[in-house]
């Protein structure tokens, strides 16, 4: 059953990803991207990473996608007036991406033998265990990421403001 769920979620993620890059209307692209994100959240749950699944849905489906949609509506881009690239360029792009796929699978395929000795711990994905790691081993990066978010907010406001004086 869970095995079937894995392949179903994988199929949904890849199909939605394909639709994101082929849809003519940018609003449709955003909606397909939301489907892909929910499929990836399902993968996190299958991997026993509940905290990541929740954060993924809140951050991506809740914040980032709303930002994308509001910018598309703000700039009134919900129509396809995008000039197409030539067929030669499209073919070259497809060949390049396919070669990249072959390279990635070829490079990463040998890595699964390294991890065979580890006993499985099903508690690491829970909020309690992850919070302990986050606030003990990774406290400094956590605080620095707060600064990063603050500077991103200020940077976005400064960029879109018409006259600062």
């Amino acid at each position: 059953m869970t095995q079937f769920l894995f392949y179903f979620l994988s199929f949904v993620a890849v199909a939605a990803g394909l639709m994101v890059i082929t849809a003519k209307n940018p609003v449709h692209s955003v909606l397909y991207l939301i489907i892909a994100f929910f499929a990836i959240a399902g993968h996190y749950i299958l991997l026993n990473a509940q905290f990541l699944a929740i954060v993924h849905i809140i951050v991506y489906a809740g914040a980032i996608m709303v930002l994308f949609l509001s910018v598309i509506m703000l700039l009134n881009l919900n129509k396809d007036n995008e000039p197409a690239k030539s067929n030669v360029l499209k073919l070259a792009a497809a060949v390049a991406a396919g070669l990249l796929l072959v390279t990635f699978t070829g490079t990463l395929k040998g890595t699964e033998s390294i991890i065979a000795a580890q006993p499985y711990d099903d508690q690491i994905g829970y909020v309690k265990a992850l919070g302990k790691v986050l606030f003990n081993d990774f406290l400094l990066p956590f605080e620095v990421s707060a600064l990063l978010l603050l500077s991103a907010i200020i940077g976005a406001v400064v960029l879109v403001k018409h006259d600062l004086k």
Partner: peptide, 15 residues
């Protein structure tokens, strides 16, 4: 991270 039983990978995903 799940196959390696290490929480560090999931913390990196968070970052």
């Amino acid at each position: 991270s799940a196959f390696h039983s290490s929480a560090a990978g999931q913390v990196f995903v968070f970052f």
